[in-house]
Design a protein around this nucleic acid. Structure first.
Length: 278
DNA sequence: TCCTATGTTGTATG
DNA sequence: ACATACAACATAGG
């Protein structure tokens, strides 16, 4: 499930526990989500510490505790966070549970493509500080994308949008939504996008990120029917702007959905290209 | 039974 | 070395 806005939504599930002490830590140390991390040791060290705050970037979350402890969480394909009553009995997919006086803070992940990491130190771990600038930051510029698309000129733009080093937080549904809004066929190659098309792509990245954070990121509600989102998995789904039947194929290794009416494989001829014959 | 799934990574291939 | 393609991971649901 989780992309940019879903990650932000789940991160906030633990907010009510800020300032609370961790009284107990329950784990499945053998669970794949720990990837060989010495769970027993850091789980013991975490006991008695206070949850101070958290942040999200790309599809990552970082939780900060007293004693210079940090927990890094990634939700993979099927992970989620929740807050449960003290009476809650963790199930087989609840790999990490932090108990405070009032709540159980639960990390659930059936498919275990997610990841839990622990660090101790005075500042956020190096991996965290190395994450690329967010889509909504000043550093995310069209110029940077022009350079990047020139280098990745042979790759379909759909595959490029999934690059976490360039489009942090964008996942499969966001990539399709962005391309649909920008009017770009997902198979277009990075190298044959015009400057103007890259500009549209950049603008839609920001628009989708902003709107998704304002809706999904707050309440997990599905975006409205005016988005591609609610139509893209429906059998026989139609484009909400043109009414044509949506197409589907595997592109960049992922199921991709697009509107053949709005996203032509060859760029539309524009008449504003300057004088004839130039 | 077989296919799909909002993700990442290691390996193979050009 | 460099970029791209693809299988693998583990589980649930249609």
């Amino acid at each position: 499930m989780p992309e940019l806005a879903e990650v932000e939504y789940y991160r906030k599930r633990w907010n009510p526990a800020f300032g609370q002490r961790i009284l107990a830590v329950h784990t499945h140390p053998a669970a794949k989500v720990f990837r060989g991390s010495p769970v027993r040791a850091w789980a013991a060290a975490l006991r008695g510490q206070t949850l101070l705050g958290s942040e999200a970037a790309a599809k990552q979350m970082l939780f900060r505790f007293s004693g210079q402890h940090w927990l890094g969480l990634h939700l993979g394909m099927s992970g989620s966070l929740s807050r449960q009553n003290p009476e809650y009995r963790p199930g087989r997919h609840d790999h990490l549970v932090l108990a405070t006086e009032r709540d159980l803070l639960v990390f659930t992940d059936p498919r275990m493509f997610g990841r839990v990491r622990h660090w101790q130190g005075p500042e956020a771990p190096a991996e965290w500080r190395a994450l690329p600038p967010p889509l909504l930051s000043e550093q995310f510029t069209p110029e940077a994308l022009v350079t990047y698309f020139a280098r990745r000129r042979a790759s379909p733009v759909k595959a490029l949008l999934l690059d976490q080093g360039r489009f942090p937080g964008v996942g499969n549904w966001m990539a399709d939504e962005i391309l649909w809004r920008a009017g770009l066929h997902p198979r277009r190659k990075g190298g044959d996008l015009s400057r103007e098309e890259i500009g549209r792509l950049h603008a839609e990245c920001r628009w989708v990120a902003r709107e998704a954070l304002a809706t999904i990121g707050e309440t997990m509600e599905d975006p409205p029917a005016s988005w591609l989102f609610p139509h893209r998995w429906a059998d026989g789904g139609t484009c909400p702007r043109s009414g044509v039947k949506l197409e589907r194929a595997t592109i960049g290794g992922r199921t991709t959905c697009w509107s053949p009416a709005l996203q032509p494989i060859t760029p539309k001829m524009t008449r504003s290209r300057g004088p004839k014959g130039s």
